[in-house]
Write a protein that binds this DNA or RNA. Structure first.
Lengths: 252, 252
DNA sequence: CGTATCAAACAGGTTTCGTGTTTGAAATGT
DNA sequence: ACATTTCAAACACGAAACCTGTTTGATACG
């Protein structure tokens, strides 16, 4: 996993100053310039940065969501704990809709060997679940957003509107009692709302860090959630505020 | 690709006599019994055969469709030629629905770098198309059938019913003038019909071998097709019969 | 026109994967 | 109950794939 670390190093360096030269990056990572060029080519392909002659500039604007490929390796343990905790809350035979995002992908993986009906809202989760023998996999229609592979659009909303689930597992980009559940992407926000409307019980999952964050698109007030599963280092005041809004907060 | 060939050898041997012992297969492939056991484990996982102590028995019944993993490596060149021929028939800007199956997967791959709106009817094709920069990818809902990953069911039909395409690329398990277009799977047949109904032009793709075959589920008469693209070793009489039904036959 | 940057090709090193062997455990048959 | 067969796990070996650095000739920029 040496190359992955270097990629992250490059991304961070480029984001820090907006742009970096190939020579700088080669020095920083103590590799050859050729390796840096190959890395930049890969990262540019993923849309993480823009290549120009002699270097690269960042495409990650402040306040924007970092891309899936990066978030996937962040806080793995916390996500794992959250995922198993959520899996324990779901009973065999239930029909579950699982939102897009890395935390929800973890939940999907934790449900692989269960006997359930599952509708994932991203192709990442769908791919993780195909072939699961006891699982009934139901895919919504829609347009997969590049990278994230989250399904959005009228087809997705129509698919959700046609179904009723026992539980919705919703990810979020920001969540707190005052601003409610928020997302970076407007289309995503609409889908989250639709998924919540189609489910009897709503479980929100989020790393502790997101409790102090608020994203662009408002999805729903905290009171619309039944359970929030988050990390064990979630601040007490936020947890209390959510509890006061009638939400069951589970820190794992 | 040595192991792939051995797997095929094993499958063929097992299907030939219904079942084979581990010792027999080890001798036949001139490998160790341990390797055979590992192979059988893999193949059993794919649902290609059933393991029992000392050997394995075939699960491929006569007249049933061989699984995706096997067909994928069959007649690669013919499929490639068909795929490029179909791609040439499609103009930039069109909206295209692409059926499931290995031949259609080839067509999807051939369209990767085009400027089109594409709705694939299988997750295999969907995965091949995500990340294509100029492509607008539209996914139908539905339940992915294991292995094939073909999307079927009411959600799929609803997605298709809501849209109108310029071209439908349809695969088939059997096709000839007298029995029309046929498929192995009933649910698949319904989807093919829905896709054809939603498209202005219908292109059927099929290896030449399938022109002399007829599968269980009737989809549509040959006259419902506008173009058939097939291999260059397609028999003249079948091609003529299709032409007589008003279909343009393209042999590549 | 000179310099910097780049992409392709080659070579070395490392890692991963597949295979074979061994060993002890489990299952089957007598 | 015992002997035999079958199996799975562990280890070791070799081949293939991958990553990286260097070289070289081409291309872009000032």
């Amino acid at each position: 996993m040496a190359s992955v670390d270097r990629h992250r190093q490059i991304i961070d360096a480029v984001r820090q100053t907006g742009q970096r030269s190939v020579v700088e990056l080669a020095e920083l990572t103590s590799t050859s310039e050729m390796t840096i060029r190959r890395d930049l080519e890969i990262l540019a392909e993923q849309g993480l940065l823009e290549r120009y002659r002699g270097g690269a500039r960042s495409l990650l604007l402040r306040g924007e969501e970092p891309p899936f490929a990066l978030r996937e390796h962040d806080g793995l343990q916390e996500k794992q704990r959250i995922a198993t905790a959520v899996a324990d809350m779901i009973a065999d035979g239930e029909a579950v809709v699982i939102d897009s995002g890395t935390t929800c992908l973890g939940v999907a993986r934790a449900l692989t060997h269960r006997r359930l009906t599952v509708m994932p809202l991203s192709l990442h989760a769908a791919n993780a679940l195909v072939g699961a023998p006891r699982l009934r996999l139901l895919l919504p229609g829609g347009e997969p957003r590049p990278g994230e592979l989250a399904l959005t659009g009228p087809l997705t909303e129509a698919s959700l509107a046609a179904l009723r689930f026992d539980t919705a597992v919703i990810g979020c980009c920001g969540l707190n009692a005052s601003n409610g559940l928020t997302a970076y992407d407007l289309a995503d926000a609409a889908i989250k709302r639709a998924a919540m409307a189609s489910a009897h019980r709503v479980i929100a999952v989020t790393e502790a860090a997101k409790l102090s964050r608020t994203a662009l698109a408002f999805v729903a007030p905290a009171s619309a959630l039944h359970v929030v599963v988050t990390g064990d280092d979630a601040p007490d005041d936020e947890a209390d505020a959510l509890s006061a809004a009638g939400v069951v907060v589970r820190r794992v």
